[in-house]
Amino acid sequence: MITRDIAAFTAFAGSLAADFGPATARAAFLVSPDGFMRAEQSAQDNRYMADAGAFDTGAALREHHALHRALAQDVPVVCFPGDEATPDAVFPNNVFATARVDGEARLIVGRMRHEVRQREAGRRDIRGFFRDTLGYAEVDLSGQPHPCELTGALVIDRARGIGFCGLSERCDEAGAARMHEAFGLRATLMFDLAPGEYHTNVLLAVLAGRAVLVHAGGLQTPGLLPALEVLYPGGVVDLNGLEQAAFAGNAIALASGKVWMSRRAHDALRPATVEALAASGFAVHSVALTAIEAGGGSLRCCVAEVF
């Protein structure tokens, strides 16, 4: 099922067991912020991006190394080098993703909206690592015309095999359908993001199939919050505007009892938010990413999951 009908999606998704696959990734990969700078094309529709003077490549490299070390507490983490020709490559989850579909391990390559990011999809080292070293089949969406920026636009509950896809200039309905098929999902709900929002994953995070961080104000879909409360009873944590602006929605669980976000996001959390996460079995862990966040994304955007 792929639909805009929230009631139909909720009824179907609510009937599914959490037996689609592991709720969290078995590994992750990063791309180093070498040559990290403001990409003017990306800035056209990313309101979170800072002015060029706020970019500090040296600081971003130090933060990224600390991020690598921190995440490696939970899963093996591989880091590929960056490239001055692809200044946004520090956010690889928009371009590369993995899935297991009917027993087949897949590397999925997305179609980016902006040319500066389309260059990332051509990386032979990342493609070769998954194809030749790990034996993953390649599903290449990068050459078709419909934008589909993978787990930036599409937030996935891997345990149930369901997706929440926010539509914007970074992903249209046809692109959503291509991702739904590539990930082999059981159900995908499509909805519009609020004006000025570019990716779902700065507004919504599904944590190990048990809890959800969401900022309802960024979703032009009033019925989505009640639907999430049906699907994740007692596990929906509604972020306020200040928490979301600090990138608290751009979070990830790589282990069943930990949620990772940036230090800025962690510091912005209200006590009630921390308590709600704890009630769902999650302790908050964080890494300082001030320099990297100048690029318009945060911790979740830096992490490409390996399933």
Rank of each mutant, 00 (worst) to 15 (best):
L231R: 00
A251L: 11
L225Y: 07
P33T: 06
L16H: 07
L204S: 00
V230I: 14
A11S: 14
A245K: 10
T10V: 14
V303F: 01
H215T: 05
M179E: 02
E115P: 01
V139R: 00
M112I: 06
R127G: 07
G241L: 11
R270T: 14
G281N: 05
S168K: 01
A121M: 06
T290S: 14
V236M: 09
R47P: 09
I108K: 01
M1E: 10
F282T: 02
H285C: 15
H114M: 11
W260K: 01
P226H: 06
H285T: 13
R131Q: 15
S142R: 05
L224S: 00
D45W: 05
R106T: 03
A294E: 07
T24C: 14
V75P: 04
E181M: 09
A245T: 10
A8C: 10
A205P: 06
A288V: 12
A194S: 15
A25V: 10
G281V: 08
H64Q: 05
R117E: 03
V90H: 00
G223K: 06
D267I: 12
P92H: 08
W260N: 03
G184M: 04
A251D: 02
R117N: 12
F130Y: 13
G234K: 11
A105S: 14
A43N: 04
F9M: 10
L141C: 04
F247C: 07
G82Y: 05
A253G: 06
T3F: 13
G175F: 07
I2N: 02
F247E: 03
A194E: 11
I6E: 04
A66L: 15
A43Q: 09
E169M: 12
G295L: 10
V155H: 00
L299N: 01
G241Y: 07
V78Q: 12
A205E: 02
T290K: 01
E149S: 07
H266N: 09
L141I: 12
A187N: 01
G249P: 02
G58C: 12
G82R: 07
T200G: 00
R106M: 04
H215P: 00
G163P: 03
A177C: 11
R100K: 08
D19C: 13
L141R: 01
S42A: 15
S286F: 04
A70E: 08
D140G: 05
Y48E: 12
R270D: 15
H266T: 11
V303E: 00
